[in-house]
């Protein structure tokens, strides 16, 4: 059967520039000053980070911004050697650690890299602290990741 299928390569390429919107804009502005900004639903009191326009539970506009600390709790994690790539499946040399980090005082968690530790040391519920990039530019990449408090 082989050899009878003709394949043609197709290049699909589209470039986008997404306007992030006022809410994420505020968050990114905070990152530039090495600060976490979330927002709080006035009805149910849930604190979201990154800030959202609408509380999914209450279907209400959220207007109140709150500052959040640089420390949080690791609520879930995984590690993989597979690169998360858009092009092809490939494995990288370094194992990448990924965690859901819930900042102290927030009700939603962010999916971010975990740094400066080994996969064996990761535990759900461990305290973590942010690692900022040297020159924040107001991009999501300003958060380099989170590291365990006390350098575990």
């Amino acid at each position: 059967m082989k050899g009878e299928i003709l394949t043609t390569k197709g290049a699909v390429r589209a470039e986008f520039d997404f306007w992030v919107g006022l809410y994420l804009d505020k968050f990114l502005e905070g990152l530039e000053q090495k600060k976490f900004i979330g927002n709080k639903c006035s009805k149910c009191g849930k604190v979201y980070i990154p800030p959202r326009k609408i509380c999914g539970d209450c279907f209400e506009h959220i207007e109140e911004y709150v500052d959040l600390p640089e420390t949080g709790v690791l609520t879930n994690f995984t590690f993989t050697k597979w690169a998360i790539s858009e092009r092809r499946p490939r494995q990288s040399k370094n194992i990448k650690m990924i965690g859901l980090v819930k900042l102290d005082g927030a009700d939603s968690a962010m999916l971010l890299p975990i740094l400066e530790t080994e996969p064996e040391n990761l535990k759900i519920g461990m305290k973590v602290q942010v690692v900022w990039s040297e020159k924040p530019q107001g991009q999501p990449s300003d958060i380099k990741g989170f590291k365990p408090i006390g350098g575990a």
Partner: peptide
């Protein structure tokens, strides 16, 4: 706007979480 620039989530990692 947020998850894609950070680029950590695909079917493997989502299933793992």
């Amino acid at each position: 706007t947020f998850d894609r620039p950070i680029n950590l989530l695909n079917d493997y990692t989502a299933a793992a979480l």
